[in-house]
Computed example of a mutant assay.
Amino acid sequence: MAKRRRVGNLMALAVLAALVQRPMHPYEMASLLRAHGKGTDMKIKWGSLYSVVHSLAKHGLVEVAESSRQGGRPERTIYRLTEAGRQELADWERELIVTPEQELPRFKAALSVISVLAPDEVVTLLQRRLEVMEARLADQREALAGYLREVPRLFLIEDEYEVAMREAEAAWVRSLLEELTSGTFPGLGLWRDYHETGHVPPEISEIAERGGDTD
C-alpha cells in the first residue's frame, strides 16, 4: 500500500528531483521542469508550484538557502534540498517503481459502457483512434531516436515507457478490431441484435442483473 506522503502532490517529486542538482528559485525550478518535459510525464498544475515548495519547506524537505531583495522587486528566495528531502525523494521513488497502482484512463471508462454504441460504429471509431495512435507513435519513435543520439538513455526512460505503453494499446485495439470485423468477438450477435431491435436480449439482461448484485 502506498504511504501517506507529507506532500503527496507529484509536483513535489519533480521539485525534489530538480533540487538534487543545485539550489534554485521556484521560477528556475519551473523553467527546468518545463525544459525537461515534466508536464507530459506527470499531471502538473504549474500555478501550484509555489504552494508545493512552501509545503515542502514547512515539512522540512527543502529549506531556504538564500534570500535577497533588490530595490523594490519582490524578495528572491532560493531553496535547497535537505537530508530529509533527499531521503523522502529516494523512498518515494522506490515506492512508485515497486508498487503497481490502478490508473483509470478515459479510454477504459469508454470501454466499460461500449455496448451503448452499435458494433459497426464502434469499429469505425476504433479505426479512427488507431490511425491517430499510429501517427503519434511514428512521431514519438522518430523523436525518441533523435534524442537518443544526443541524450543518454537514462534520461529518456520515461519516454521509452510511454512509447511501449502506446504500442501495447495499439496492438490491443488492432486485435479487438480483428475480432469485431471477422465476427469472432463473443456475443457479437446479441450486441448487434440489441441495436437492431432496441430490446435487451434475455442473456444480456441476466448477466447485467448478476453483475449488479456484486457491486
Results as ranks from 00 to 15, higher is better:
Ile114Asp: 03
Lys108Gln: 11
Gly47Trp: 00
Ser68His: 12
Ala65Tyr: 13
Val116Met: 10
Pro119Gln: 08
Ala110Ser: 07
Arg106Gly: 08
Arg106Leu: 13
Gly60Ser: 03
Gly47Met: 01
Asp159Leu: 14
Ile78Met: 07
Tyr50Met: 13
Lys58Arg: 15
Gly39Ser: 08
Glu167Lys: 04
Ala118Arg: 12
Glu167Leu: 07
Glu95Met: 11
Gly39Pro: 06
Asp159Val: 04
Glu63Met: 10
Glu160Trp: 08
Glu66Ala: 14
Arg69Asp: 02
Glu88Gln: 09
Arg149Lys: 15
Ala135Arg: 15
Ser48Gly: 05
Ser48Met: 05
Val123Met: 00
Arg106Ala: 14
Val151Thr: 13
Leu61Ile: 10
Pro100Asn: 02
Met42Ile: 13
Leu89Tyr: 15
Lys58Met: 09
Val151Cys: 01
Met165Leu: 15
Arg34Phe: 08
Arg34His: 12
Ala145Gln: 13
Arg94Val: 03
Val64Leu: 08
His54Cys: 06
Ala143Phe: 11
Arg128Pro: 06
Arg86Glu: 06
Gly146Ser: 04
Leu56Gln: 09
Val163Trp: 07
Phe107Ile: 13
Val123Ile: 15
Leu33Lys: 04
Glu158Met: 05
Leu137Arg: 05
Ile97Pro: 02
Ala138Lys: 12
Leu111Lys: 02
Tyr161Gln: 06
Ala30Arg: 09
Pro74Glu: 10
Ala118Gly: 13
Met165Arg: 15
Ile157Pro: 02
Leu156Asp: 02
Tyr161Asn: 05
Arg69Val: 12
Pro105Trp: 01
Glu160Arg: 08
Leu96Trp: 15
Ala170Tyr: 01
Leu154Thr: 14
Ala90Val: 07
Glu121Ser: 12
Ala35Pro: 02
Gln127Tyr: 08
Ser115Leu: 14
Val53Gly: 10
Leu130Asp: 00
Gly85Gln: 06
Thr124Phe: 06
Val64Gln: 10
Phe155Tyr: 15
Lys108Asp: 06
Ala35Thr: 02
Lys45Ile: 15
Glu93Gln: 13
Ser67Pro: 04
Gln127Ala: 03
Ser55Phe: 03
Lys58Phe: 13
His36Glu: 07
Lys45His: 14
Arg153Phe: 09
Gly47Asn: 07
Glu142Gln: 14
Tyr147Lys: 10
His36Ala: 08
Met42Lys: 11
Leu111Glu: 03
Val116Cys: 07
Val123Gly: 03
Gly47Tyr: 00
Thr82Phe: 14
Asp41Trp: 12
Glu93Gly: 00
Leu137Ala: 03
Ile97Met: 07
Glu63Asn: 04
Arg76Met: 11
Ala138Ile: 00
Arg94Pro: 00
Leu125Tyr: 12
Arg141His: 09
Ala109Thr: 14
Thr40Gly: 05
Val123Trp: 06
Leu61Gly: 06
Gly39Ala: 08
Ser48Tyr: 01
Leu137Glu: 00
Arg34Ile: 09
Lys108Thr: 05
Ala138Asp: 03
Ala138Met: 03
Glu150Pro: 06
Val123Phe: 10
Phe107Asn: 02
Ile97Trp: 14
Asp91Pro: 00
Ser67His: 05
Leu137His: 06
Val122Cys: 10
Ala170Pro: 01
Ala138Asn: 02
Ile97Glu: 09
Thr40Ser: 11
Leu144Tyr: 14
His36Tyr: 14
Gly37Leu: 01
Trp92Leu: 07
Val132Lys: 04
Val132Ile: 11
Glu93Thr: 15
Glu103Cys: 06
Val122Ser: 05
Ala143Trp: 15
Trp46Phe: 10
Asp139Gln: 10
Arg34Ser: 12
Ala135Pro: 03
Leu125Asn: 09
Val132Asp: 06
Leu111Cys: 09
Gly85Ile: 04
Glu134Arg: 15
